[in-house]
Simulated scan of single mutants.
Amino acid sequence: MPELTEFWIFLCVGFAAQLIDGALGMGYGVISSVVLLASGVPPAHTSASVHAAKLFTTAASGASHLLHGNVNRRLFWLLAIAGCIGGVAGAFFLTQMPGKLIRPYVFGYLLIMGLLILWRCLRQGKERHVMPGAFVAPLGGVGGFLDAVGGGGWGPVVTSSLIGAGAQPRQVVGTVNAAEFVVTCAVVAAFVTTLLTGIWSEGKGLADHILPVAGLVLGGLPAAAVAGFLVKRAPRRPLTFAVALLVITLSSYELICASDIFAPENTAQETVSKPSLAEITK
C-alpha cells in the first residue's frame, strides 16, 4: 500500500527532524516543510499540516525543557506574545496567496534558512548573559510570521539570532522551544479560523494529508520527550551542519524545478507536474 509507505516515510522524517530540533532548537519545521513541499503539497497546506503536527511535538519538547530547567520565563513570555502576533498575520497572508505563485518564494525562504543555519554552524562567539531587550519582541514577531509562511523558521530565525547575540545556547534552545508551542497554537487557530469562515478557499484539501501529518506526529513525539536531555548531550556542530546541507540541497533543487513556471516558453502551455511522494512509492 503506497499510503502506508508514505506514512512510514514521514514517521522517520518526523523522528529524525525532532531529534535534531530537540538538540539544536531548530530543524523540525524546516525539514518537515521541505519534504512535504517536495512531495507536491501546496504551501498553505504544508504550513497548516506542519503546525498541526507541531502542536504535539512542541508541547512534549517544551515540557521536557521546562523539566530540565532550560527555560527563561521572562524571555519566554516576550517571545510567545510577539510570536503569536506575527504567526497569525503570516497564516492569514499565506491563505490569501495562490499556491503556485508563492511556492518558489517559500523555497527561496527555506534556502535562506538553510544558509542561516550553516552560518550559525560556522560562526563561533563568546557566550554572555542576554536579558530581554527592545530587539526581542520584533524578533519574535518576525520569527512567528516567517514560521507561518514557510511552515518552519521559528528556530532558525529566533534561536540563531539570540545565540548569535551571545546568549547561553541551553537557555535559548529551551526557551525558544517552549515559546514555539504557544506560537504554534496561535498559528493553528488562525488556519482553522480561515477554514471555517471560508476565507481560505483552498483549505478543504487538508484531509488528504492526514497520513503524513500522523507520521510526523508519531515520529516526533518520542524524540520530543527527550529534548531537554538532548540539548545538553548532543554534538551541536555536526548536527547543525547536516541540517544546513539537507535544507540547502532540497530547497535549491526545488527552486530549479520551480523556475520552469516562470520560463517564457511555458507561459502559453501547462507545465508538467512532478510526481508526488505517494506516487513515487507505488
Results as ranks from 00 to 15, higher is better:
Trp8Ser: 04
Trp8Ala: 07
Ile9Arg: 04
Ile9Thr: 12
Leu11His: 05
Gly14Leu: 05
Gly14Ile: 03
Ala16Gly: 07
Ala16Met: 12
Leu19Phe: 15
Leu19Arg: 03
Asp21Leu: 04
Gly27Leu: 04
Gly29Asn: 10
Val34Ile: 13
Val35His: 09
Leu36Trp: 05
Pro42Gln: 10
Pro43Tyr: 08
His45Lys: 07
Lys54Trp: 05
Ala59Val: 02
Gly62Glu: 00
Ala63Gln: 04
Ala63Met: 10
Ser64Ala: 04
Ser64Thr: 08
His68Thr: 13
Asn70His: 15
Asn72Ile: 07
Arg73His: 08
Trp77Ser: 07
Leu79Glu: 02
Ile85Cys: 11
Gly87Cys: 11
Pro98Phe: 05
Lys100Val: 06
Leu101His: 07
Tyr105Met: 10
Tyr105Ile: 11
Tyr105Cys: 09
Phe107Ser: 04
Leu111Asp: 06
Met113Lys: 00
Leu115Glu: 01
Leu115Trp: 10
Leu118Tyr: 12
Cys121Tyr: 05
Gly133Asn: 12
Val136Trp: 06
Val136Lys: 03
Ala137Trp: 02
Pro138Asp: 10
Leu139Ile: 04
Gly141His: 02
Val142Ile: 15
Gly143Asn: 10
Ala148His: 09
Gly150Glu: 01
Gly151His: 08
Trp154Tyr: 08
Ser160Gly: 09
Ala165Ser: 12
Pro169Gly: 06
Gln171Val: 05
Val173Ser: 01
Val176Asp: 00
Asn177Lys: 07
Val183Asn: 00
Thr184Asp: 00
Val188Pro: 12
Val188Glu: 02
Ala189Tyr: 06
Phe191Gln: 00
Val192Trp: 09
Leu195His: 13
Leu196Pro: 03
Ser201Ala: 13
Ile210Ala: 14
Val213Pro: 11
Val213Cys: 14
Gly215Lys: 01
Leu216Val: 10
Leu216Tyr: 07
Val217Lys: 04
Leu218Ala: 09
Gly219Arg: 11
Phe229Val: 07
Val231Met: 05
Lys232His: 15
Lys232Asp: 14
Arg236Phe: 09
Pro238Leu: 06
Thr240Val: 03
Ala242Asp: 02
Val243Thr: 06
Ala244Lys: 07
Ala244Cys: 08
Leu245Ala: 12
Leu246Asn: 02
Thr249Ser: 15
Ser251Val: 09
Ser251Tyr: 09
Tyr253Trp: 11
Cys257Asn: 14
Ile261Met: 12
Thr267Ser: 10
Glu270Leu: 14
Glu270Cys: 07
Thr271Trp: 08
Val272Lys: 15
Val272Arg: 14
Ser273Pro: 02
Lys274Asp: 12
Pro275Gly: 13
Ser276Gly: 15
